[in-house]
Design a protein around this nucleic acid. Structure first.
Length: 446
RNA sequence: GUGGCUGUAGCUCAGCUCGGUUAGAGCACAAGGUUGUGGUCCUUGGGGUCGCGGGUUCAAAUCCCGUCAGCCACCCCA
């Protein structure tokens, strides 16, 4: 194959007009709802220094970073050393999420508001293996609040994403909630060490998918004793029972503080759009290493992964400056939302392309057609001028291809009368309409 | 990272099991069905070194090996 591949890189996509319209529809709702919560926009560079990105996501995350090669002489120098490593060859990478860039920004601009509420809608890149609903370039829609440990902030970020999904027409999503300290308490109570926490949590996260026996099997494979697995699972299953959170919150001990924190979160969130969506899920773990408190994940029937996730990360900003700044955030995955909406046909009619195709006879000067088109556009119409003058059948056929609802035909008779022959393509009805009245006619028939 | 499936025209695919005349269909595209009217219909046409490389054979889209790419399910994530 000597031809150059015309496909976009693996895991990345082109968006044609209809795709862009659907994406903009969702993004418009996201932006409107986020701003209604008082969040202000932020945009950061595509590229960050590797020192900013590395060590924030855990080892799996570092592995998935897109790295940018040194340029020119620096690359030559780096290649000259024996057995150069990734770190020798690159100094920058594509951003992996929007949370770490936010942490950098908060650490960098000391005159930001004490309680900085920012939203950010930008693409991120992960060198992951592509799958259904998973891409290497995808958009995240983040809301975060820095500078406060208040449960109000936790409830507000949940409320913002719940508000977005409701505005888009979702009725069956849930926000699973857990607490990192609660998880740790369960693991320690079952007799595991702190180092065993991570692998144990990964196994537990699969409870819904592989079932009780599957989890026990995986725990056994990882070298945990059978008693340990049973103890852990038993405790978590009890925690899943209705009212269990209240029991945990009532007992003095390591479970009390995080359980009370979650109770408070549920109580405050109940007053907002997230209220009826929150469900306590003691098995929720989440992969990113920077979470410290409550953690969230959005699930929706029929979607394998999650539509979004988030949590509290009180130590991340402190990695960029001496002073610790607490923070909490939530991220919606645009393409996950789009995937479900497409499968369910949740999009309203989205106007794409011209409303009117201006067709002209061969004996009408091009300038006259452009002049009429300009007049129509000043009425607020989306108008395309057919560039050439083939047979009228060709021009109308093209109007069909475009999906334009109207064709405006301009011949010498219409030109002299100051009208167009306005044809409604679907009904075939056609009438002589003064140029000044076209927008009104289009509005009536649309 | 693990397991499975699929690569034939711009798109969706048939043909492959049992190798054998110029590799097909539908859709899309273009021209025409007479020159100011489309969507249906009819006719005609352009377009493919059958993903790539190697092997077996007189002969490979078809059988074998490798490779690349895509898809699906796990894992993980948004």
């Amino acid at each position: 194959m000597s031809e150059i591949s015309t496909k976009p890189p693996s895991g990345m996509r082109d968006f044609l007009a209809a795709d862009v319209a659907r994406r903009r529809h969702v993004l418009g709702v996201v932006q409107r709802v986020y701003e209604s919560f008082g969040f202000v926009p932020l945009e950061t560079p595509t590229i960050e220094n590797l020192t900013t990105l590395l060590g924030k996501y855990g080892p799996e995350g570092d592995q998935l970073l897109y790295r940018i090669l040194h340029r020119r002489e620096r690359l030559q120098r780096a290649l000259a050393v024996p057995a150069p490593t990734e770190l020798d060859l690159s100094d920058e990478g594509l951003r992996y999420d929007l949370t770490v860039p936010l942490a950098r920004v908060v650490a960098n601009y000391r005159d930001l508001p004490a309680f900085y509420k920012r939203y950010q809608i930008q693409p991120v890149w992960r060198a992951d293996r592509p799958a259904k609903g998973r891409f290497r370039e995808f958009y995240q829609c983040d809301v975060d609040i820095t500078g406060t440990r208040s449960v109000v902030a936790d409830a507000e970020v949940c409320g913002a994403v719940a508000g977005v999904l409701e505005q888009l027409g979702f009725t069956d999503f849930h926000i699973h909630v857990n607490h990192r300290e609660l998880l740790r308490a369960f693991v320690l109570a079952a007799g595991l060490t702190a180092e065993q926490e991570a692998p144990a949590l990964i196994a537990l996260d699969k409870l819904d998918k592989v079932g009780r026996d599957g989890v026990l099997q995986e725990l056994a494979q990882k070298g945990f004793g059978p008693g340990v697995g049973e103890a852990l699972l038993g405790a978590l299953e009890r925690a899943r029972q209705p009212g269990a959170l209240a029991v945990l919150a009532a007992e003095a001990g390591p479970f009390q503080a995080p359980a009370q924190a979650l109770q408070e979160l549920f109580a405050v969130a109940a007053a907002g759009p997230a209220g009826k969506r929150l469900v306590f899920d003691p098995t929720l773990a989440r992969g990113l290493s920077y979470y410290t408190g409550p953690i969230f994940e959005i699930t929706c029937a029929g979607l394998a992964g999650s539509m979004g996730g988030g949590g509290r990360y009180d130590n991340l900003i402190g990695m960029f400056k001496k002073q610790q700044v607490p923070a909490v955030g939530f991220s919606l995955g645009l393409e996950r939302v789009l995937l479900v909406m497409e499968e369910r046909g949740m999009f309203p009619p989205l106007g794409v392309g011209p409303q009117v195709l201006l067709c002209r006879m061969a004996d009408v000067p091009a300038a006259a057609a452009v002049q009429v088109a300009t007049a129509l556009r000043s009425q607020g119409l989306r108008v395309e001028v057919f560039a050439d003058t083939p047979q009228m059948g060709k021009q109308l056929g093209y109007a069909n291809t475009l999906g334009a609802p109207f064709a405006a035909i301009l011949g010498t008779a219409e030109l002299a009368a100051g009208t167009v022959a306005l044809k409604h393509l679907q009904s075939g009805e056609q009438a002589a309409v003064p140029v000044a009245d076209v927008a009104r006619h289009v509005a009536q028939r649309s």
